[in-house]
């Protein structure tokens, strides 16, 4: 457990992958299954006691932005917990629009790699508290057995040639307020988070890290928080398909001495 964090609760964050205003869940970023209306699902998670909601717009082509902004606006009308929105965030104007629509944080991924300066400008302009840097990381085969991970961009389609741990440190220096860390190897597998990756990053940066990619059981969430040292866990399918409610998840974590909010 993180030393000295007192009574700060670990956060449970359902993630809604959104395309054209509908929620889908990607299995290793392909094979999409439609799972419903984002506003209704966000309201349901709010009722269940979710600590935050994250929308990732996985198409994010420019002509779809209005639809996304409308979804954000409608969600912010009824859901009074923090809302993070990511996907295709490329400019200060994009960020301004999302915050104005009611997002509390925006998550930047590909554009941070293209232009690290963008993260600095965004955090100076809007404050670090609303700038999340999303890192998609994939394990690199290493003959010496010491694991390392490479950053991927464009929704996990293209390697960026950057070391993930190094990158997380740089993004913290550039003013990121939080890291959303997704294991490309685990995403959609339901085999659990990549704990080596998660702890490598949480031990490196002093900003909060959200573990993502691979959660299939409640035990996995526990591992991400306690063994990985994550401040929060993000999950999609275990919540979307009603295997567990957020409430049940928190009861489980509480029973294992993890501080959670009820």
């Amino acid at each position: 457990m993180t030393g000295g964090s007192g009574e700060l609760a670990r956060r449970i964050i359902p993630c809604l992958d959104v395309t054209e205003g509908r929620v889908v869940k990607g299995v290793q970023f392909v094979n999409l299954i439609d799972a419903g209306d984002p506003v209704e699902i966000a309201e349901e998670y709010d009722r269940q006691g979710a600590d935050e909601i994250t929308f990732l717009d996985i198409t994010a082509s420019s002509d779809r932005r209005e639809i996304l902004l409308d979804v954000v606006k409608r969600t912010a009308e009824t859901v009074f917990i923090p809302l993070t929105v990511g996907g295709g965030v490329r400019s200060l104007e994009n960020i301004r629009e999302l915050l104005k629509a009611g997002a509390d944080k925006v998550s930047i991924n590909t554009e941070a790699v293209h232009q690290p300066r963008f993260v600095r400008e965004a955090s100076l302009k809007f404050g670090s508290q609303c700038i999340v840097v999303a890192i998609d990381a994939k394990r690199v085969a290493d003959p010496n057995g010491k694991p390392s991970w490479e950053v991927y961009i464009y929704g996990g389609r293209e390697p960026a040639g950057i070391d993930a741990v190094q990158w997380a440190r740089q993004m913290e220096e550039y003013g990121a307020g939080e890291i959303l860390l997704t294991s490309m190897d685990r995403d959609g597998t339901r085999d659990g988070y990549d704990i080596d990756l998660t702890s490598a990053i949480t031990e490196t940066v002093s900003i909060p890290v959200i573990a993502s990619g691979g959660a299939g059981t409640l035990e996995h969430l526990y591992e991400g928080l306690v063994m990985g040292g994550a401040s929060a866990v993000l999950a999609a399918s275990i919540f979307h398909f009603r295997e567990f409610t957020v409430q049940e998840t928190k009861e489980y974590l509480h029973s294992r001495d993890v501080a959670v909010r009820f």
């Binding site: 993180t2 030393g3 700060l8 401040s231 909010r261």
Partner: peptide, 15 residues
């Protein structure tokens, strides 16, 4: 104080 092994910002739900 960052030296206290704290994540800063203090972000999330607290009592």
């Amino acid at each position: 104080d960052r030296n206290k092994n704290l994540k800063v910002p203090h972000m999330g739900w607290n009592r």
